[in-house]
Design a protein around this nucleic acid. Structure first.
Lengths: 346, 346
DNA sequence: TCCCGTCGTGCAAACGTTTGCACAACCCCG
DNA sequence: CGGGGTTGTGCAAACGTTTGCACGACGGGA
């Protein structure tokens, strides 16, 4: 049965106007008399007119779509960021086109191609873990499609980006442990070619130095930051001749793994061992004890990146200097790092 | 600098062919000679030609976009389903347009409108929790846009749908508790106009009846299935003159809430109280004890729903009978429901 | 009265693709 | 050698919108 949608031509015919006038009236063009504008919008509403964005996009050379490339969309962090992106975009009348690179450079390249053939107005990207080059983004630049990176950025390239101040996150987490009286603080870190892990470690070291404490290589454990890594890391630390009295983990998952090992060994948290994670995963409120963690404001990151992209779209200046936004993380103090009675002590 | 993309017209000019021939060659039309087809594809590759999907969509009356409406995209379940949807869609050359209804009927209505104005080829929907009517979907039907529901569907409406066998999930969960020797089993349930909660409850009741046990109204608590609801529900149950010895919760979140209350009161799980959740959230492996739950195969559900939608798109038959796919859930038994020594007992 | 500026509207082209129809060339068979 | 079928290609319209330009009407100043 498929009833045809009302088009701008239908409105024009019924109102004895030209399509140009109707088009202008609907887009609020100043040269249209108020009376005409009212007539047009009234009929448009009556007929339930919806603009055909394909036609508009074709004519204008770009759609009202924003492309998003993420390593994967499940998982706490990216799904929340995407939530923020979608919210900000739809508020501005844009749609969001999602692609997953599956942490794979070749996929990422293909994603960009298909987004460009969909004529997206702009693109948001968080790099795949294997993306160590930048060539595939040159084509995007050539076409003057605004591009904003978030969270994961390729080091050494000056691009529009919204990132977290991971250094500050690591610093505050570690400093909090120090303020709670812990003095031998270990750290779980990830691949150092990812800026996020590198910066978290730098924050950790800065805090130690500020307290005049040495950075001991034995106390820094590198891994992939999942639960099994947390198990292994904790066992390794406990086997040291002089084990730590606290751990700042660059991920909640490895922190949870550590927690399990500690429970196994009958060590109490936070009394015998302080523990701080990173990312504020949902389960952090469900562990026993609850896990102190660093919140990344994922949704805000999505919103912010989108707003930045929309600004770039408005400007249409060919090549302004790349803009950076750095979001501040937030330390959420829960039981796993709170030595009661010692709180606030130097 | 914005280099222009090569269009079909450019190819035609360079090859001294008409645009029609080029178009047909690229889409594998049988009436094109093999020689011509080769020439065209060769040049297309050389120039890096990418079809302009906006133009194609405009001409064909529909785009290569699939619309998706979900209550929200963060959280374990929906982000995984969307992952499956995106994977299946992009494999078939489609893009995915994501909308969030924020569990709100008005939003959902608006989402559908904007998807239709984006000329999506088909739509995938999981209903918002407040969607207790169906009117807004009539317009989609009128336009002959294929529509597939997943997970949450409105009871009493015969539509294309991919759902979980929630009844079986509820049945198996409850039966497992019975097999573990629990005899007074309570249940947390949600809004009964949503199939998922209704069916989980039915499975629960079926299992009780099979064991010759009564279904007691006092033992069924209705709510929104979040953590605070789990707190309240558990307190309510413990206040009963004759409290239950186990709870089958229709959601992991309320199960987690219940767990907290039990810990507060010093009640042991699974010894004093058995606990089973639903959805296999990530945190279920991190609670103490680990939470027995029902896995929904979220990603598979996304893939399946998308495949069904793509089939409907291929057929283009105006109104075939609505198709249903029912996926089987999987009970994942963990410590929260395992009374050691009693395992397997009648 | 004439000229010029302003205001509101219309004309028509353009965006890149698909597709029904027509047509030219060729082959085969009678 | 002519008629009919097949094969490969081109013409042109159409999808719904936007937008540069032109045009007519009207008003005010000279």
């Amino acid at each position: 049965m498929a009833k045809k949608r009302a088009s701008i031509t239908d409105l024009a015919r019924q109102l004895q106007l030209s399509t140009s006038t109707v088009s202008r009236a609907l887009s609020g063009h100043p040269a249209i008399s108020e009376a005409t504008a009212r007539r047009v919008t009234a009929l448009a509403k009556e007929l339930g007119y919806r603009p055909n964005s394909l036609a508009a996009g074709l004519r204008k050379g770009r759609s009202n779509l924003l492309g998003v490339v993420v390593p994967h969309i499940d998982g706490n962090f990216f799904s929340q960021v995407v939530k923020g992106i979608e919210a900000a975009a739809s508020q501005a009348g844009y749609h969001v086109l999602i692609c997953q690179s599956n942490e794979d450079l070749a996929h990422e390249r293909e994603n960009l191609e298909t987004l460009m053939s969909a004529q997206v107005a702009g693109i948001l990207v968080s790099l795949s873990r294997t993306s160590n080059e930048f060539r595939h983004f040159e084509k995007v630049r050539k076409r003057d499609i605004p591009l904003v990176f978030f969270d994961r950025v390729l080091v050494g390239h000056d691009v529009n980006a919204v990132v977290l101040d991971d250094r500050a996150g690591g610093y505050r987490a570690t400093r909090h442990l120090l303020e709670q009286g812990y003095r031998r603080i270990a750290h779980f870190s990830g691949p150092q070619y990812l800026n996020i892990y590198k910066h978290r470690r730098q924050g950790y070291e800065d805090a130690l130095r500020e307290y005049g404490l040495p950075v001991e290589e034995d106390l820094i454990v590198f891994g992939h930051m999942d639960m099994p890594d947390g198990h292994a890391g904790m066992r390794q630390l406990l086997a040291l001749p002089h084990p730590p009295d606290a751990v700042f983990s660059g991920s909640d998952f490895s922190a949870a793994g550590a927690l399990e090992v500690l429970a196994e060994r009958g060590l109490r948290v936070p009394e015998d061992m302080g523990l701080v994670g990173f990312s504020n995963e949902v389960f952090g409120r469900l562990t026993l004890p609850r896990l102190t963690s660093v919140d990344q404001h994922c949704e805000l990151m999505g919103r912010t990146a989108t707003r930045l992209l929309l600004e770039l779209l408005e400007e249409r200046e060919p090549a302004s200097a790349p803009r950076h936004v750095v979001l501040q993380p937030e330390l959420l103090i829960r039981a796993s790092s709170l030595r009661t009675g010692r709180a606030g002590a130097g």
